[in-house]
């Protein structure tokens, strides 16, 4: 009898602990379309295309009635770059990184670009630390280190579609 009472008590305590824990119980996906730019002239090799993304995220959560405090974490689910037809055989690889003024830069996605590809799907990193902190830290930036095969006199523009998953509790 005592054993049954003890078991019920344990279950009760366990369910209370689970229900009170701060785990996210809601998830939403949102995407950002931005253009990362490197100002030309550019030399053969790695060049840095850059864009600021903090305002896009702030706008999104405001529109969806989510406060910063409700958000448990944010992860990048997918990233796709568009290559301009004039640069089809120019870009060799794209290494995507995010950072902010107070949080370190980290790699979030990478792709080797096949010749002639117009849309490049990047492989997203498994390890994504502090993405929420970076994205809400004043100004946050996304950069793409794009390796190009030859010198380019013009700017290099990389339109990028980024899909994030945002986990939050009500």
């Amino acid at each position: 009898m005592k054993l049954i009472q003890l078991t019920i008590l344990c279950f009760g305590l366990l369910s209370m602990m689970v229900s009170c824990s701060p785990e996210a119980n809601n998830s939403k996906e949102f995407s950002i379309d931005t253009v990362l730019t490197a100002s030309g002239p550019l030399f053969e090799g790695s060049n840095t295309c850059q864009a600021e993304i903090s305002s896009n995220i702030a706008e999104y959560i405001k529109e969806n009635g989510i406060s910063k405090e409700q958000i448990v974490d944010i992860t990048l689910k997918s990233a796709a770059a568009s290559i301009d037809t004039s640069n089809l055989n120019l870009v060799e690889s794209i290494n995507l990184q995010v950072f902010s003024d107070n949080f370190p830069m980290q790699n979030v996605a990478f792709a080797n670009v096949e010749e002639g590809s117009q849309i490049v799907q990047l492989e997203v990193a498994d390890v994504q630390e502090q993405l929420k902190a970076i994205l809400f830290d004043g100004k946050s930036y996304i950069i793409a280190d794009a390796t190009i095969k030859e010198d380019l006199d013009d700017d290099l523009n990389l339109p990028m579609n980024l899909n994030f998953s945002i986990n939050y509790h009500k």
Binding site: N95, Q97, M105, N107, F110, E123, A125, D126, V127, T147
Partner: peptide, 19 residues
């Protein structure tokens, strides 16, 4: 790289000094 998915990133162009 500790992240298996990032092991294809070329060393040429790699950011070894950060922040």
């Amino acid at each position: 790289n500790e992240d298996e998915k990032m092991r294809n990133v070329p060393l040429r162009g790699y950011r070894m000094l950060k922040d």
